[in-house]
Simulated scan of single mutants.
Amino acid sequence: MTMMKIIYFLLLFIVPIKCIEWKKENHTYVVVPNKTIRPNQLYGFRIFDSKQKTLLYQLKVSSKDMDTAMLVDNPTKNMVGNLEGIWIDKAFNSTFSVYDNKLIKWTDGIIQSKWHLLSPYYTMEYNNEQFIAKWKGVSRQANVYTKNQNELLAEWRPPTLSLLWKYPKYNLKIYSNKLPDAIYFFLLLVMDHRYLDYDS
């Protein structure tokens, strides 16, 4: 009986520790919409460090024959990723290219929108692997997983006060290095535009 009690108490400590380690982020960004946003127009983001003091990236957008986004590294002013396709309308088809520091080369990928039980979710193909992103219920929190959804790679959600805004800022927490950060920025951009589209 004494041994069982010891095992029970050990489990009480071990299980929470594993959960905390699994949820511990590698790094965090604050993603802020552009200051001027016109109704029914594309809008970009400014991407800051976790304390929102240092501007790290700018996500610049335009829309002519197709929707495009360019990710610029703010300190160097170099382009480190681009996204193009159609994502602001109901039709959806987008491809992206990012500079992968691990692979030391530009690598292409695809983002697609799909439906399950009247709820949209998003699939990405990158470096011969597949990933899934979806909103958590009707909230503006989204999670990014590996294809079989057994590993949480990243999540974003607005701070509490920002929930009152139509165009909130987001806290983006990244838990894994499996994907370049640029892909999460592109996903957030696309999903936020389409969230407003579904909500309108």
Rank of each mutant, 00 (worst) to 15 (best):
P159C: 08
L189R: 06
K169D: 08
K166I: 12
W87N: 03
Y170E: 08
L196C: 10
N78H: 09
D192S: 15
T68I: 05
N82Q: 13
D65V: 14
L117S: 04
K166T: 14
I86E: 12
A91I: 06
I111M: 08
S119D: 07
E84A: 13
Y126S: 02
T68P: 00
N127I: 01
F92P: 01
L172C: 04
V98P: 02
S176M: 10
P158G: 08
D73C: 12
T2M: 13
P33I: 04
M70I: 15
M3I: 11
L196Y: 05
I20L: 06
K136T: 14
E84V: 02
N93W: 02
N82P: 01
E21G: 02
S119V: 05
S200K: 13
P168Q: 13
D73L: 02
L172I: 12
V61H: 11
L187P: 02
E155N: 10
R38I: 12
R140D: 07
Y170M: 11
K60W: 07
Y29P: 07
W165E: 15
E25P: 15
L161H: 09
I7W: 01
N148P: 00
Q141S: 14
Q41H: 15
L117Y: 06
Q52S: 12
K114A: 03
T95V: 12
N26C: 08
Y57W: 03
Y198L: 06
K136E: 14
W87S: 02
T68F: 02
G44T: 11
Y121C: 00
G81I: 06
Q130R: 08
D49N: 15
I6Y: 10
T107W: 00
K5H: 10
W115G: 01
S139E: 14
K90F: 12
Y175N: 11
L188A: 13
K18G: 01
S94M: 15
S119W: 03
R194N: 10
K102W: 04
V32S: 11
V190S: 03
